[in-house]
Simulated scan of single mutants.
Amino acid sequence: MPNAQCACGALRLMLSGSPQLTALCHCLACQRRTGAPFSANAFYSIDCVEVSGTSTEFIRTGESGGKVRMHFCPTCGSTVYWKADVSPPWIGVAVGSFADPVFAPPAISVFEQSKHTWVQLDKTVKHFQALPIGQY
């Protein structure tokens, strides 16, 4: 299993399982968090993730209305993982923190209501205008 880490390596995640879901998110908060037109996310069962190092937590209200607790490295600023109130058994991990070009491709694309018009996705990705609560 690949492990995830911040840019400087001070905050790391050791994963003992495969992602339960991989997704792209086009919400405005993810665009601002990543500095990109969307975020690439892998979701793991919380009990197969071991966190090593110190993180700073930033809590925001997601577009779904629930709280999202973002954890980033206080040294380099990389957001490595988050926990969302709407899905307590999962931990979200930034796919870029794996630095693995063959990481599992996204299965779904959410919050396409704010997707940049020039972003084109593979036809195998399921598309949702908002968050598909209860489907994943």
Rank of each mutant, 00 (worst) to 15 (best):
V80R: 04
L121S: 01
Q120A: 14
T22Y: 05
N3M: 08
E112C: 14
K67R: 14
F72H: 10
L11V: 13
F38H: 14
C25I: 10
S78H: 02
Q31G: 03
R12A: 05
V80E: 00
F72A: 12
K126D: 07
L21G: 05
G53Q: 07
S64N: 12
C30V: 12
D100I: 01
A23M: 13
E57P: 06
L24C: 00
Q5L: 07
T22M: 05
F43R: 07
F58V: 11
H116N: 09
T56E: 03
E112Y: 01
L121A: 06
T22R: 09
I46D: 12
I108W: 09
G77Y: 01
P101K: 14
P2Q: 13
V95P: 10
Y44V: 06
R33F: 09
D85M: 09
R60N: 11
C27Y: 04
T61Y: 00
I59F: 07
Q31Y: 09
R12C: 03
F58L: 05
G53K: 03
S18D: 14
V86F: 12
M70R: 10
P89H: 05
F111G: 03
V102Y: 13
C30I: 00
S45R: 12
S52N: 03
C25G: 14
V86E: 01
A99E: 02
H127E: 03
A40M: 04
W118H: 12
T34F: 11
Y136C: 09
P106A: 15
S55E: 00
W82K: 02
P74L: 08
S39G: 15
T117A: 15
Y136I: 13
A99W: 08
M1A: 06
S97I: 03
N41F: 00
V51A: 02
V119R: 08
F43G: 07
C76H: 08
L28Q: 06
F98W: 08
F38V: 11
P106T: 13
P88V: 08
S109D: 15
S78D: 02
R33Y: 06
S97T: 15
N41C: 10
F98I: 01
H127F: 07
S97Q: 04
T75R: 09
S64C: 07
Y81M: 11
S18F: 01
P101R: 06
W90C: 04
C25R: 07
Q120C: 14
N3K: 01
S16L: 10
L15T: 08
R32K: 15
K83W: 06
Q20S: 06
A10H: 04
K123M: 09
S78R: 01
Q120I: 15
L21N: 11
W90E: 02
E112N: 15
I108C: 02
I46K: 15
R60I: 14
